Amino acid sequence: MKASSPFVFTTGTIGYPILFVMLIWIVFWAEVRFNVSFNSFGVRPGEIKGLRGILFSPFIHSDIKHLFNNTIPLFVLSLALFYFYRPISWKILIIGLLATGLLTWVIGRPSNHIGASGIIYLLASFLFFKGIFSKFYRLVALSFGVVFLYGGLIWYVAPVDPSISWEGHLSGLITGIVLSLIFRNNIAQPPKYAWQEPDYSEEDDPFMRHFDENGNFIESLPEEEETSETEYHYIYKEKPDKD
């Protein structure tokens, strides 16, 4: 008989990733439909006005190719985040969004940095390192899945193309690693089975009540219980080892 799984597929698990993808497509549609450009709302390092891009830049894309390249990774990685790490998913997204944007503003070239790539690198980095730290087979498998699907992303944290914001990619990568360390202890535990759980606790065991937490004998045998000296030594002087 298996206990409840720590991983639950809810409406939000798939609903939020769909919402994120819809938002970036709606913003792009609005630019095309009304012939406007939101590029000025990107992260502009060194400019106070450029700080607003920390919130707005992930929703802005330069063209349809840029948008399409970010759509599938954003959906897949955010889906994995909400499924495997649902209790801390919003913390990772909100803190990660702010930290990635701020770090880009600090280390970035004096240019206009837009796109959801920084968030994608944040999610890929967090999911990979968090899975490795967990030592739980499902999450480790997720880590290798991320590497298999998006391992090529690592090349774009270096200035290989002047038209790509490698600073935003690097900021997302660093932020994901830091968050995986900060939330290192927030790991879903493997499901337990009924045969793994004892039917009683130490408090219910009349023999174990006579030992303190350090294993020292603290109570003599009740007078009404008749036990030979040999049995007394076995029961009270030798506390069973616990794994």
Results as ranks from 00 to 15, higher is better:
Ser78Asp: 10
Tyr234Leu: 15
Ser163Asp: 07
Phe211Lys: 03
Ser78Met: 10
Val140Pro: 03
Pro190Cys: 07
Gly46Gln: 10
Lys135Thr: 13
Gly145Tyr: 10
Leu19Ala: 15
Thr175Val: 14
Ser165Ile: 06
Gly176Gln: 01
Trp29Arg: 04
Phe136Tyr: 13
Phe56Glu: 03
Trp29Leu: 14
Arg109Ser: 06
Ile95Val: 15
Phe68Gly: 05
Pro17Asn: 09
Pro159Ser: 01
Gln196Trp: 04
Asp205Ile: 09
Arg109Tyr: 12
Thr13Cys: 03
Ile107Thr: 14
Tyr200Pro: 00
Phe75Met: 11
Glu47Pro: 02
Thr13Phe: 02
Val146Leu: 03
Tyr137Asn: 03
Thr13Tyr: 05
Asn35Lys: 12
Ile88Arg: 12
Val146Glu: 04
Phe144Gly: 02
Trp166Glu: 06
Glu203Arg: 09
Gln196Ser: 14
Ile26Asn: 06
Lys65Arg: 12
Gly101Leu: 02
Lys135Tyr: 06
Thr175Glu: 02
Asn185Tyr: 12
Glu203Tyr: 15
Tyr150Met: 04
Ser180Gln: 04
Gly46Lys: 04
Ile182Thr: 08
Thr230Met: 05
Met208Ile: 04
Leu179Ile: 01
Phe82His: 10
Lys135Trp: 09
Val146Ala: 06
Thr71Val: 07
Pro110Asp: 14
Ser57Trp: 09
Ser4Cys: 07
Gly46Thr: 05
Phe207Glu: 02
Tyr236Glu: 00
Gly151Trp: 06
Arg184Pro: 02
Thr227Met: 15
Lys237Arg: 13
Gly172Phe: 06
His113Phe: 07
Pro87Lys: 12
Tyr150Arg: 03
Asn186Gln: 11
Leu93Ser: 11
Asp161Glu: 13
Trp166Ser: 13
Gly176Ala: 01
Val157Met: 07
Leu81Ser: 00
Ile182Lys: 08
Pro87Asp: 04
Asp212Gly: 01
